[in-house]
Design a protein around this nucleic acid. Structure first.
Lengths: 216, 216
DNA sequence: GAACGCCTAGGTATTTATACCTATGTATTT
DNA sequence: AAATACATAGGTATAAATACCTAGGCGTTC
């Protein structure tokens, strides 16, 4: 296997040199770029926010443990997928890790092949999440350029109201809705209503106070 | 707290009477309807598919253990949220449970308040999942009534093609698209394109081979 | 062979949306 | 005071969707 996307990093945080050494070797042999650290703080200072990857994290470490680092990452809104590895953790540790979104929690010693599978899974998860974030940010940028009135009109368009209906609801002339609508389509770079709805729906841009459909 | 939605059930599966007895009392005191079983098979035979709820499940049991039951439920496509409780399970057990979707994995003895919190969480999760399933089934029903050609036209409508474009793509007269389109709108009970797109998008009805938007 | 479902496609009329244009009042910023 | 941004709304024209109608061809089922 060869994962030489040059900008994907597998981070490895463990206070024991022997573990870092052995795992780094294993993971590099699978084609990944590995960055090893012996403490959580070093990882925090050297993590490349801009590139996808995953984190292999020891639970028990001096100063800052793996679970604490996970908390810190959540606080900082860093969503790198985490695979925990541990020598003497317990079930509450594992439960805490999983409930906070861990990909897996492996007890040392573990099957090397499982770790490599989890790395694949975690990296794919991160890449996908980043793509979605990019797309959302791009749409959100457009959305933020809309004026309040334009957002209202967008809401009405997406909620399937015709210009005439929207005009009644906002109590203005249909021509005014025309104007707003045209500006909305322009600013959102949408070619037509279907594209607009798709954009808004897939990223939950608007407060979904409306019911798109009732179940009979 | 009072959860007397008469049709929500908290299932409790544990081979020890003392555990069942104590927990059933606790959970009933919070207003839930509780169904207790001393083995996995009894639960499978008595689970009410049609009502929401959650499952509190012991890991170590004779005949069929909790993790085996979880597997069996997945096989049978039964998606009831599970809260595991265990006396002497290990981390791999917990990891397996979580990776298969468990809500939590509690070691006996556990804080009663945490169990009650997890029950709330799990039941809410099931109710939400069931609502989405209902909505999806309703839309899927309509969708299934479409002919192959109508599905193709729906695909084109949702992908933002005008009648004229769709006509070119399918190499038929625009009038034919008109006809198909009208039948699609009718069968899908959609009042307009926005509603149609919403329906299809929110339940990923069509193979998403198209890119709704490119990120610059 | 008749009935049915489906794809096909035209006629006609109405309603909507879209694309240009202009223009005024108001509030905010410079 | 001038410039800018925004909501407002009209004129005119074209394009598109929608709602009615009819109807032939084709394959399957009864």
């Amino acid at each position: 296997m060869d994962h030489n996307s040059p900008n994907v990093f597998v981070y490895l945080v463990d206070d024991e040199f022997a573990v870092r050494d052995a795992l780094a070797l294993l993971i590099k042999a699978s084609g990944w770029s590995v960055k090893s650290f012996d403490c959580a703080q070093d990882f925090l200072n050297n993590y490349y926010h801009e590139f996808p990857g995953c984190l292999i994290l020891d639970v028990k470490m001096p100063v800052m443990g793996g679970l604490e680092l996970q908390e810190e990452l959540i606080k900082r809104n860093i969503k790198i997928p985490i695979i925990f590895i541990s020598g003497n953790a317990d079930i509450p540790d594992s439960a805490k890790a999983f409930r906070a979104g861990a990909v897996d929690f492996l007890e040392k010693p573990f099957e090397k092949s499982i770790l490599l599978e989890r790395i694949d899974e975690a990296v794919q998860k991160d890449i996908k999440a980043r793509q979605q974030l990019l797309e959302k940010a791009s749409i959100q940028d457009c959305f933020n350029r809309l004026t309040t009135r334009e957002k209202e009109v967008l809401q009405l368009i997406v909620n399937s109201h015709s210009n005439k209906e929207a005009a009644k609801i906002l109590d203005v002339s249909p021509r005014t809705i025309d104007a707003h609508r045209a500006r909305v389509m322009d600013k959102m770079q949408a070619e037509n209503v279907a594209a607009l709805v798709t954009m808004v729906m897939s990223h939950e841009l608007l407060s979904q106070t409306f019911a798109p459909r009732e179940v009979q």
